[in-house]
Computed example of a mutant assay.
Amino acid sequence: MKKFVYIVTDRNRASLHVGMSADLIKTLDFYKQMPSLFFDHAQQLTRLVYFEEFKTESQALSRFKLISRFTRMQKERLVRSCNPDWIDLTIGLDFEHITMNRPIPTQVKMPLTIMS
């Protein structure tokens, strides 16, 4: 089973939170539904800016512990190394999740084109 280590932030990048999850989509949905559970309303951690995927829990746990000890500057460098514009990556994940669960049409009809 896949495991993920991730960094989420608020819209102002004031807080950087490192986490670990087996279901990244469900975890991010939780952050969005309960935004002020851990922080006040101004620091809603709803933007996924970094994540890594691992095959085993021990690999993920090791990486989680390492990144958790990073200074803020080190975390920012890590995010910028693969997401320099701090784009919210949940958009791509949601798209992937939606398309993976959508039934694949068994027959595709091509439109007829008439050339004059």
Rank of each mutant, 00 (worst) to 15 (best):
Met1Thr: 09
Lys2Gln: 08
Lys2Tyr: 10
Lys3Asp: 15
Phe4Lys: 03
Val5Trp: 00
Tyr6Met: 02
Tyr6Pro: 00
Ile7Trp: 00
Thr9His: 00
Thr9Pro: 01
Arg11Asn: 13
Arg11Gly: 09
Ala14Asp: 08
Ala14Phe: 13
Ser15Gln: 13
Leu16Ile: 00
Leu16Trp: 06
His17Lys: 10
His17Glu: 02
Gly19Leu: 06
Gly19Ser: 08
Met20Leu: 13
Met20Ile: 11
Met20Asp: 08
Ser21Gln: 08
Ala22Gln: 15
Ala22Met: 14
Leu24Glu: 01
Leu24Lys: 00
Thr27Arg: 14
Leu28Asp: 00
Leu28Gly: 01
Asp29Pro: 04
Phe30Asp: 11
Phe30Pro: 05
Lys32Ile: 04
Gln33Pro: 07
Gln33Asp: 15
Pro35Ser: 03
Pro35Met: 05
Ser36Glu: 03
Leu37Phe: 12
Leu37Cys: 05
Phe39Glu: 12
Ala42Ile: 11
Ala42Ser: 14
Ala42Pro: 09
Ala42Val: 12
Gln44Trp: 04
Gln44Ile: 04
Leu45Gln: 12
Thr46His: 07
Leu48His: 04
Val49Met: 02
Glu52Cys: 01
Phe54Ile: 02
Lys55His: 10
Lys55Pro: 14
Thr56Leu: 14
Glu57Ala: 05
Ser58Ala: 12
Ser58His: 15
Gln59Val: 02
Gln59His: 01
Ala60Tyr: 01
Ala60Val: 02
Ser62Gln: 15
Ser62Thr: 15
Arg63Val: 10
Arg63Pro: 08
Phe64Tyr: 06
Lys65Tyr: 09
Leu66Trp: 07
Ser68Gly: 02
Arg69Gly: 14
Arg69Val: 06
Arg72Val: 05
Met73His: 10
Met73Tyr: 05
Gln74Trp: 03
Gln74Arg: 03
Arg77Ile: 09
Leu78Lys: 01
Val79Trp: 00
Arg80Ala: 03
Arg80Val: 06
Ser81Ala: 09
Cys82Gln: 06
Cys82Trp: 00
Asn83His: 02
Asn83Val: 00
Pro84Gln: 01
Asp85Tyr: 10
Asp85Gly: 11
Ile87Cys: 11
Leu89Met: 13
Leu89Val: 09
Ile91Arg: 15
Ile91Ser: 14
Gly92Phe: 02
Leu93Val: 08
Leu93Phe: 04
Asp94Lys: 05
Glu96Asn: 09
His97Phe: 08
Ile98Asp: 09
Ile98Trp: 07
Thr99Lys: 14
Asn101Met: 03
Asn101Gly: 10
Arg102Met: 14
Pro103Met: 11
Pro103Gly: 14
Ile104Asn: 15
Ile104Gly: 15
Pro105Leu: 06
Pro105Phe: 06
Thr106Phe: 12
Lys109Arg: 12
Pro111Val: 14
Pro111Cys: 11
Pro111Ile: 14
Pro111Glu: 14
Leu112Phe: 13
Leu112Tyr: 12
Ile114Met: 07
Ile114Asn: 05
Ile114Tyr: 10
Ile114Leu: 11
Ile114Phe: 10
Met115Asn: 11
Met115Glu: 12
Ser116Met: 14
Ser116Asn: 10
Ser116Arg: 13
Ser116Glu: 12
